[in-house]
Amino acid sequence: MNKIFPLQMNTSDFLFLIGLVLVFALLFTMLDTSRRRKKFRLELPKIKTELQCISCGLKEIRDFQEDDYISKVTGEKCKKCGEDLKIIAIYTPPPKESTSK
């Protein structure tokens, strides 16, 4: 028995080992590639528009529409009193990182 290198291998063990390493390398590369591709996926956040009735103050939230801007009286009517609604805020949900700490 060799004291320095106790591991004795024959040809088939060696080939098996190389094969195993190759399979793991391939799996790792595939996983890494898919992880990186996933990382780049372009995710556009949903933009919300918050409106408020200029008479009764009732608030309403809907999806953002092109040409919405702060303080715009959109022509939409309040469900409660029928008065005009005004945009008071436009925003996206807060990102996950910023809420964690």
Partner: peptide, 15 residues
Amino acid sequence: QSLPEAISVMNKNIV
């Protein structure tokens, strides 16, 4: 806010 937040659509925390 972070740089991405500064030049992306304003988020609720900032509003």
